[in-house]
Amino acid sequence: MNKNSQEFVDVLLKKLVKLNYIKPGDVPNIDLYMDQVTTFMDEHLSDIKRHEDDKILTKTMINNYTKNNLLPPPVKKKYSKEHIYVLTFIYYLKNILSISDIQKLLNPLTDKFFNTDGVPALDTIYKEIYDMEKLQLEALPQDVLGKTELSKQAFCDVENEEDKDFLQLFMLVCLLSFDVYMKKNIIESLIDDYTAKKASSDKPKTKEEIKEEKREAKEEAKEAKRAAKQKK
């Protein structure tokens, strides 16, 4: 990897650390119409765009999220700060997860903590996640720089400088991609495990299971009576 490529990585890392995010305190406490929501999201996440004409969020996206049961419907065409939190989660998750997996994650979240008396409140959940992610972001440059150094040690025997530079760049991309791939697999496994356990707990009990539970309850009651008599 030549000097120009190294400098580009350094500049990119500095840019990533300074990217705009939707801070907990930035989310308005008043309800917003859809146009206001898309404007808010675009203003706060514009730095993340890869291309200038990329759309952070559109009306169609919001409607589709609601249709796919990712986002609770608005109240009288207005969206609350809880909607903004959920839309932010969707924005980040959709880059690595399927709609189905996002649904499995967000449904329990919105069922228990969206405009409910659930504890903790959704804004508390968002703030805690935001704070943790900021800490992760601080460690990102060191990780990327470490992989950059590894890639510079590869293909050193290639004599053509242009070819060597490309191959080392390709190595860096592969190292970063492998990291994302492995973490994506871990995330999917966590979701699958949670979903399987949830389905098992929600599954109606069979007659045999109910009968066995009653038998065990009777045995426990008898044991309790025997213990009480012994104390007397």
Results as ranks from 00 to 15, higher is better:
Met182Asp: 01
Ala227Pro: 01
Val75Glu: 07
Leu71Gln: 00
Val75Phe: 12
Lys55Phe: 07
Lys55Thr: 06
Leu135Trp: 00
Pro73Asn: 01
Glu133Thr: 06
Pro204Ile: 10
Ile102Gln: 12
Phe166Ala: 04
Glu188Met: 08
Thr124Tyr: 07
Thr148Ile: 01
Phe155Asn: 06
Glu149Lys: 14
Lys76Ser: 08
Asn185Pro: 00
Pro73Phe: 04
Val119Ser: 12
Asp117Phe: 03
Leu45Arg: 02
Arg215His: 09
Met182Leu: 13
Ile48Gly: 00
Met171Pro: 00
Phe170Trp: 06
Ser189Ala: 13
Val86Phe: 04
Glu7Lys: 13
Asn95Glu: 07
Asp163Gly: 00
Phe113Gly: 04
Lys78Gly: 06
Glu133Trp: 07
Lys127Gln: 14
Glu188Tyr: 05
Glu43Gly: 01
Lys18Ser: 14
Lys59Ser: 07
Glu208Ser: 14
Asn68Ile: 01
Cys156Ser: 12
Ile99Ala: 02
Gln153Tyr: 01
Lys15Ile: 04
Asp192Trp: 10
Ile48Trp: 11
Asn107Gly: 00
Met61Trp: 05
Leu140Met: 15
Thr148Met: 14
His51Trp: 12
Asp53His: 14
Lys134Thr: 06
Pro204Leu: 09
Val9Thr: 09
Ile187Gln: 09
Asp26Thr: 03
Leu109Ile: 13
Lys112Gly: 01
Asn68Phe: 09
Tyr85Ala: 11
Thr60Ala: 14
Lys49His: 06
Phe89Met: 15
Lys211Leu: 12
Lys23Cys: 04
Cys174Pro: 00
Asp157Asn: 10
Met132Leu: 14
Ile96Arg: 00
Asn2Arg: 06
Leu190Ile: 13
Ala199Glu: 15
Lys205Glu: 13
Ser98Asp: 03
Asp193Lys: 14
Leu122Phe: 05
Lys18Pro: 02
Phe114Ala: 04
Tyr92Met: 06
Pro204Tyr: 10
Ile125Glu: 09
Ile191Phe: 12
Lys225Cys: 04
Asp54Ser: 11
Pro28Tyr: 08
Ile56Trp: 08
His44Cys: 02
Glu43Phe: 05
Asp179Glu: 14
Thr124Pro: 00
Lys14Asn: 14
Ser151Gly: 04
Val75Ser: 08
Lys184Met: 10
Lys147Asn: 10
Gln168Asp: 03
Lys49Tyr: 07
Asp26Met: 10
Ser200Val: 01
Asn29Val: 12
Lys214Asp: 06
Asn68Val: 03
Glu52Tyr: 12
His44Ala: 04
Ala217Asp: 12
Lys147Ser: 08
Lys147Ile: 02
Pro72Arg: 00
Asn69Trp: 02
